[in-house]
Structures are given as C-alpha cells and as structure tokens.
Design a protein around this nucleic acid. Structure first.
Length: 597
RNA sequence: GGGCCCGUGGUGUAGCCUGGUUUAACACGCCUGCCUGUCACGCAGGAGACCGAGGGUUCAAAUCCCUUCGGGCCCGCCA
C-alpha cells in the first residue's frame, strides 16, 4: 500500500490522525533543520514537514528534489495561526512526517510544473506532454472535460438514449472533408476510411429501431489545422427517431442546461466569479436573419455592432460604388461603430486594409463629430442623403459609420469579419458570458465555384423544408431558395454543433443525389446500403453532433482546442511526443500492397 | 497553396531596428554551503547558451541579406 488518503482530501478534522500519502515533490523549502515539502497528487497539495526529531529521516529528506515520487507516513497537525497558508485549501494543516519512501527519482524536468505563470514553447509542451499535463491548469482542463462528457452522457442516459459504438474502419464517402485512408492488407488495393462522423451508421441505427442513440466518438478529417481544429476530434453524436427539428433542439437545450448546472462550480472557478444562469429557451434565428444582421451563420451575439442594410437609401445616389452595387443585384450595408470617431486616420486605414484582406474593394466610412460629418466619400453625397443614412443608422456624435458595398455575400463576409475585429478592438465582448444560439432554416444547397455544381450545405441526407413532392421543380427553378430542416448550435460565435432532420424516403434521397450530380449508378455504389435500408420501414429521424473539444475549450475559457486534448498534434499535424506520422518498414508496405512514388 | 509573427543556457525573456565596451544580460530552474516556521522561503557562492540549421555580405554578424527546418495565428480548405 502506498497511501491511505489523497493529499487534497485532508481537512482540519483530520488533525491527530496518522495518514499515508503518495505523490510528487511539488516544491521544497529547506530551512536546514526544518524541511517543508509541498506534496502533490491529482487531488491537490499538502505541506509535509521533516524536522530533526529523526536525524536519519531528515537526512533522507535533504536529498529530495522536484518531481521525485514519494510515499510518506505522518501525523496530520493543525498549523499555528501565523503559519496558516490561505492560498491553498489544505493550508490550515500539515503532515509531520514519520517515515519516507522514495518511489522514484526524476531528472530536472524541462517544464517547471510548479510555475503557473510561464508557459514553455508549445513544441516542448507537446514533446513532454506527460509533464505538461502535471501542471494545475492542464489537469483541471482534463478533469473538467471528463465532467462535461459525463454530464452529457448522464443527461442523455436519463432521457433514454443508448450509447452504441460504430466502426472506425469504414467506407470513404464523397462530399465533405478529405478522408483519412487505411489500406487493407486482406483486400489488396482497397482502402477503409476513418469516419468524418458516424452519420450513416446512426441513421442505420434508427432504421434498426434503436430510437435514441448517442456516442461520444472520435471523428477524423484530413484538413488543415487551426486553433479550434484537430485532425481527430470528439463529438457527442446523437440521433433520434420520430422527431421534429424542435424536438432535437429542445432535447439539446435540456441536456446543455443540465450540463451547465452540473458544471456550475467548475465554470465559476475557471472564471473566478459567479456566471449567470442560462436563459431558456436559447434564441432561435433563421439563417437569412443571421446573414442579414451579422453577415455570418455563427454570429457572436455577445455584442451589438449589427449590420444594417441601407441599399434602399443609396440605390439612387451619385456615388457609383453604392448605387452601382445595389443596381447590379448587390447590397450596401453599414455598421454603426459606436465611439468609433476617436479612431485615428491610421486606424481607419488599418481597418480598411483588413477589409481588403477579407475580399472587399475598400471600406468607406463616415465619422460623426462635433464639427460635423467627416468622410472621404462625403463629397459624393447630397447633405440630405447623408442625413438620411445617419438617421437610419442611429448615428450620434462620436460614432463612425462604416460601409460595405458589393455582392451580397462579399459584403456580409467582410462586414461580418470586421464586426468581430471591432468587437475585440473596442472591448465590447464579455468573455465570461455564454450566448447559446440556434441558427435554423439553412439553405439545402449551395453552389460550389470550384466544382461548378450544387453541393449540400450540410450533408446529402438532410431533409428539405416544404413539400417534398415538388422538390425537383423547386430545384429547377431556384436551388438556392430551398431551405433545409437543418440547424446549427452556436456558442459565443463558434459553431459547436449542427444537425438536421434526415431524409427517410428512398425516393427523395435518390432525387437529392441526382440534384447533387451523382449518377444513379454512382449513388448506388456509394450509398446503396443506405438506399436499401430506407426501403425497409425507415422511421422519420434526425439528430445532431456537438463538438466536445470546442465546447470544453469555450466553457473553460481556453484559446486553443489543444489545451483540452490530452495528446494533440501541431499545426502541421505532427505529434512531437511520438513522432507520428513516420515512415514504415518496406515489409509493412509490401503487405499492404503499397508502392511509394 | 498563400499571408503575418516567433526561434538566444534546462525554461521564459532582453539584446537584433541603428553590426564593433558583450567576456551575450536578466529572471526562474539547477549545483554547493548556511539556516527550525517557510509556503514563489531567505542568504552566500557556482556551473550552464557561441544565439534553430546552412549559405552570403563585411575587417567584423545573435544583429544585415538569402535559403531551409521547426512552432504559432490566419486565408484557402473544413458536407
């Protein structure tokens, strides 16, 4: 036996009892005759004391160094009033050691575990991840992650959902992200793909009559990495039968609320303050409205600075950039940057440079000052035209209006991004608030410029809104106007989940494949198993998948998904710890029937 | 595929712009010694980097230039 108690569990009431503890030497304070050690295990810290009552023991203690692993026996003692350390939970007590066992020594670690203020280069953190994870923050993050997953699982379990595993070695499907491929040894020249999500399997489970399925499951997408994107990531994948969109959203709201309740203390601790309770139901906003007001399908509603469409006001003005944009089917939108008039010319130039980077031709602006309107474009307008714009924008002295004029999607994209920049720059974002939001009524299709065809916005199994019978007619007329029974779940401007009601009718599914440009034969080859299944009494069904890593990151207030994943990869998809990916033996390649170019 | 930032003892940084008094500085850590109430203990002393790698410019390069490798943020990409 190495221990009878955990370090962090000791409390004042334990005084007088003899305990055995095991853990790591966190810090040592050697006073010569008296040695203090902060002993650390997963539960926390406790100060242990070596005095000179036992000379032999004291001599052993002198040799202890950072990160040595020890087991001790000792007596829990109340500290004197002056000696209490209010900074740690166990600060009222200490353990006077009576015997010491060094279980392992340690080299001086390249990461200072006890130093919470500095953070080594990420390369070093990942190479010595097992040390990095010893630090308080990382340990807390992993514990927090565990609790979130458990809360989600508990909530779904209580609701009658079954956790069912689905294959990792599966079939490559077109559409969507690039697949990770796994060569088959047994089937020469053939490949499995790792799932981008268990999408088709969970639908099949509905056909199987499982009714309510969930899985905390790894998904794989071979795309470039970002602060919030890893090639393998975890989803809470959910599917249910006989449900409407509202049923799914209601269910997720209940689950999220229960999860937030279960995590309340942890979240408050992360933020160092009480976080207000969530307001229910979460706001639901159509995709059209989100694009109109925020220029994005994942609006950060923690602050204002909304986009306002001023096309009607400017379609006849002399300024061709504005009127021309409207006349050619585009749009002119404006943001009232409250207090923006204080920006210097250089700051406005920088903002414009950013807008150009985002794809704008320029960024017009108009400052409302005590001395009147200041703007490089004012001279192109009649005074009453400017007045009307300022009035519509509710402009006041001290504000700056910025404008985007172009094709609708460019204006939305540019101003949407500029809005986020300004939100940060003007410090308008309450970092300790949680704005959950549903975006609904997505377009079913969008046109892909690269592929020169209509592609699914969500995925090809998404059910359209409206009458399914005249789907082809609607598609022929105006593909972009067809809305989907699809919804995204947004938190603070991040997409943390998305789902849809699926097509459960083989004929409709077949038609959608056709619209997407799959020949009958190809659809059969790629998705035949799904089409078959839909012919055997497939119930209406739908579901959603939540990105666990992002959710944990946002709730914990971290800036990178890597801080809530035990062993993540670098931006170049490399693992400094293991050295993966790496070359393999010729023998292995040969068995897999693979010849390198 | 593209843009921007970074790389200096074990760790985090300064120095670089404006090349030469730099024997490359500081903090943490590490080592030795002293110390019985510290808790980021204190005090005294010490070791440790030729500046990511390669090339170039120059009398002289951590410093300027080019190439390359690695890390980060972003665009593209991510149904």
């Amino acid at each position: 036996m190495y221990r009878s108690r955990s370090c962090g569990s000791l409390i004042l009431k334990d005084q007088g009892s003899e305990v055995q503890l095991a853990g790591w030497v966190h810090r040592r304070r050697d006073h010569g005759g008296l040695i203090f050690i902060d002993l650390r295990d997963r539960s926390g810290l406790i100060q242990i004391v070596f005095n000179q009552d036992n000379k032999n023991l004291h001599a052993q203690a002198e040799k202890l160094r950072s990160e040595f692993v020890i087991s001790i026996k000792g007596n829990v003692t109340k500290r004197t009033a002056e000696a209490v350390n209010k900074n740690i939970p166990t600060g009222e007590i200490e353990v006077v050691v009576t015997s010491l066992d060094v279980l392992n020594t340690s080299k001086t670690p390249p990461i200072e575990i006890a130093d919470a203020t500095t953070e080594p280069d990420e390369n070093i953190r990942l190479k010595y991840r097992y040390l990095d994870l010893r630090k308080d923050k990382m340990r807390e993050n992993l514990i927090f992650r565990h609790k979130i997953i458990k809360a989600i699982s508990d909530s779904l379990d209580a609701d009658g959902f079954l956790e069912i595993e689905t294959p990792f070695l599966t079939k490559s499907t077109p559409e969507g992200a690039r697949d990770f491929l796994v060569p088959s040894r047994v089937n020469s020249g053939k490949f499995y793909a790792l799932p981008q999500s268990p999408q088709l399997f969970k639908q099949l489970l509905m056909v199987s009559g499982m009714e309510k399925y969930f899985q905390i499951v790894r998904c794989f997408r071979d795309e470039d990495l970002r602060a919030d994107r890893q090639p393998e990531f975890t989803q809470a994948d959910i599917e249910m039968s006989f449900c409407s969109e509202k049923d799914v959203m209601d269910m997720i709201e209940k689950m999220m609320t229960e999860t937030m309740q279960a995590l309340e203390k942890d979240i408050d601790q992360y933020r160092g303050k009480k976080i207000p309770k969530l307001a229910l139901p979460f706001p639901r906003m159509s995709w059209d409205e989100a694009m109109e007001r925020y220029g994005t399908d994942k609006p950060d509603t923690r602050f204002g600075l909304e986009l306002v469409n001023i096309s009607d006001l400017v379609k006849e003005v002399g300024f061709k950039v504005f009127s021309g944009a409207v006349k050619s089917g585009g749009v002119v939108k404006s943001i009232n940057v409250k207090g923006g008039a204080k920006f210097s010319r250089a700051e406005m130039d920088k903002l414009e440079a950013q807008a150009k980077q985002f794809g704008a031709k320029g960024l017009a602006w108009l400052a409302i000052t005590e001395e009147g309107l200041k703007s490089p474009i004012a001279k192109f307008f009649k005074p009453e035209e400017l007045e009307a714009i300022v009035k519509l924008m509710k402009g006041e002295v001290g504000d700056t209006l910025i404008f985007g004029a172009d094709k609708t999607d460019i204006v939305n994209d540019v101003l949407g991004r500029i809005r986020l920049e300004l939100g940060e720059k003007l410090d308008l974002i309450d970092k300790d608030s949680f704005h959950f939001l549903w975006i609904t009524d997505f377009p079913l299709f969008e046109y892909s410029e690269t592929e020169k065809r209509w592609v699914s916005r969500h995925h090809p199994f998404t059910a359209p809104h409206g009458n399914w019978a005249d789907l082809e007619e609607r598609f022929a007329k105006d593909p972009a106007s067809i809305k989907a029974q699809a919804y995204d779940f947004v938190l603070n401007g991040s997409e943390i989940g998305g789902g849809s009601i699926r097509i459960h009718d083989m004929n409709i599914q077949r038609k959608v494949f056709k619209m997407l440009g799959f020949a009958e034969e190809e659809a059969r080859r790629r998705f035949g198993f799904l089409l078959d299944a839909l012919e055997y009494g497939a119930p209406p069904h739908g579901g959603i998948a939540l990105g666990i890593d992002r959710l944990v990151m946002l709730l914990a207030g971290m800036d990178s998904i890597r801080d809530v994943i035990a062993f993540p990869k670098t931006q170049s998809a490399f693992c400094p710890l293991t050295g993966a990916p790496d070359v393999v033996d010729d023998k292995q390649l040969k068995e897999l029937h693979i010849k390198l170019a």
